[in-house]
């Protein structure tokens, strides 16, 4: 019993180590979501759109037609598949 616990602890620490390294490795990959968020912020400023809002004349992709609250990152709000144009 004790042995198996020990074993599982070892396994777990290996797993943890793996997760840790995984985290470190993931970190140098391109942060796509953060980049989308940054892109949205910059595009909103350059095109003078309201925060997180699509272009004024386009049909709203979702039911909420009001401006999204500032906390909602556009990256999260973005539908997974691109809407038909």
């Amino acid at each position: 019993m004790k042995k198996s616990l020990k074993k599982s602890a070892v396994m777990l620490s290996i797993g943890t180590a793996a997760i840790l390294t995984a985290c470190v490795t993931i970190n140098i990959y391109f942060p796509a979501a953060a980049a989308e968020k940054a892109a949205d912020k910059i595009i909103d400023e350059v095109w003078q759109l309201k925060q997180g809002q699509q272009a004024p004349e386009s049909t709203p992709a979702d039911k909420t037609s009001e401006p999204k609250p500032a906390e909602t990152t556009p990256a999260e709000a973005k539908p997974t598949d691109t809407p038909a144009k």
Partner: peptide
């Protein structure tokens, strides 16, 4: 601090410019 991200950033922007474009563009 990641000069090599330039291409990925450009790709991300490409999609977002188009998504945020006004209808008619």
């Amino acid at each position: 601090g990641h000069a090599e991200w330039q291409g990925d950033i450009q790709n991300t922007f490409a999609g977002r410019w188009i998504d945020k474009a006004q209808s008619g563009w």
